[in-house]
Simulated scan of single mutants.
Amino acid sequence: MARGKQQDAWVFFGELLKERREAAGLSQEELGRRVFVSGAYIGLFEQGIRKPQKDVARRIDEVLQTGGIFERTWRKLIDKSPYASYFTEVAELEAVATKLCEFAPTVVPGLLQTAEYARAVTIAANPFATDAYVEEKVSARMERAAILQDATRPEYWVILHENAVRTPVGGQTAMAAQLDHIAAMIRQRRVLVTVLPRAAGAHAHMTGTLKLMEFADQPPTAYTETEFSGTLLDDPAVVKQAQRTYDLLRVAALSPEASLALIQSAAEDFRRCASTT
């Protein structure tokens, strides 16, 4: 998969880090110990696979005596990202994941959104935004979704709460098209979608979205997001707990066949409503 300009910039960040680290005569393990991360993480930073948090970039500057170059570069790269600061690294990780598992309680996940749906969501959250701002966000979301069209696309599992299926985001016609898109992706076997029905009642994850990511050459991670913030989770014990939560959601959901039937039925309901208004 071709890298975008943002990813190329992080690769440059990593190459600069390796150059300065070696000039200081430090191994990855030694630098990691001094900035309170593992040597393996330093290696991932140097490859451009992972992005350090701001405080880690600052500590690297202090240890390598760089005059603040890594913190300044970090700020510049984050500012250039079309995503919220807490989501920038997640978007980059999606592109290199071998498997994604996602739970969406209220909104269709970004990787499955149509442009019209994404536009409606963006405007709802930013009612005074300019057209240019809205289209930038929509374009970024469509660019993310392109990974599902790639020959090396990740295995993608999604659990949609029925609320996300039944809410007419963008209007009846737009929502019918959104559900048609999801159904087509299912039939093309690009995603495995199940629906958690409203009748299931209380469920294992009641506080926002949940995303699990697996990789070929690094440990799995989990990501949770609420309305105003998101958290990337690396601790193995926490990731294991998140995986168990996802398993509980999966057993409470409808079968793939019943889920597809519900999605198609909901699309027809929206179309029928649109034709009578």
Rank of each mutant, 00 (worst) to 15 (best):
A2V: 15
A2Y: 13
Q6A: 13
V11D: 04
V11R: 12
V11I: 15
E15V: 13
E15D: 10
E15G: 08
L16H: 15
K18A: 09
R20H: 15
A24H: 01
S27T: 14
S27H: 01
E29D: 14
E30S: 11
R33P: 10
R34E: 15
A40N: 11
L44P: 05
F45L: 03
K51M: 15
K51V: 15
K51L: 14
P52D: 04
Q53P: 09
Q53G: 12
K54W: 10
D55P: 03
A57Y: 06
R58G: 12
E62H: 15
T73F: 04
T73Y: 11
W74F: 05
W74S: 05
R75I: 06
L77A: 12
I78G: 09
D79N: 08
S85H: 11
T88E: 15
E89Y: 04
A91V: 15
A91C: 14
V96E: 09
E102N: 08
F103T: 10
A104L: 04
P105F: 04
V108Q: 04
A115S: 12
E116N: 11
Y117A: 01
A118K: 01
V121H: 02
A124F: 11
A124Y: 08
A125W: 01
N126S: 12
P127R: 10
T130W: 05
Y133N: 00
K137R: 15
K137H: 10
S139E: 14
M142C: 01
E143C: 01
E143Y: 03
A146D: 02
A146S: 14
L148G: 03
Q149W: 05
Q149T: 13
A151S: 13
E155K: 13
N163R: 12
A164M: 00
R166N: 13
V169M: 03
G171L: 05
T173R: 14
T173S: 14
A176Y: 08
M185R: 03
M185P: 00
Q188Y: 04
R189C: 07
R189V: 03
V193K: 02
T194D: 06
V195Y: 04
A199Y: 06
A202C: 01
A204C: 00
M206K: 03
L210V: 06
L212S: 07
M213P: 09
M213I: 07
F215R: 07
A216F: 07
A216K: 13
Q218E: 04
P220C: 08
T221P: 05
E225L: 00
E227D: 12
E227T: 10
F228P: 00
F228I: 07
S229F: 07
S229L: 08
S229H: 07
G230E: 02
T231A: 08
L232D: 05
L233N: 00
P236M: 01
T245M: 09
T245A: 04
T245E: 07
T245C: 05
Y246R: 08
D247N: 13
R250F: 12
A252H: 12
A253C: 01
S255G: 06
E257S: 06
E257F: 04
E257Y: 02
A258F: 05
S259E: 03
A261L: 09
A261F: 04
L262R: 14
L262I: 08
A266Y: 02
E268H: 15
R271H: 09
R271I: 06
A274Q: 07
S275K: 14
S275W: 13
T276I: 03
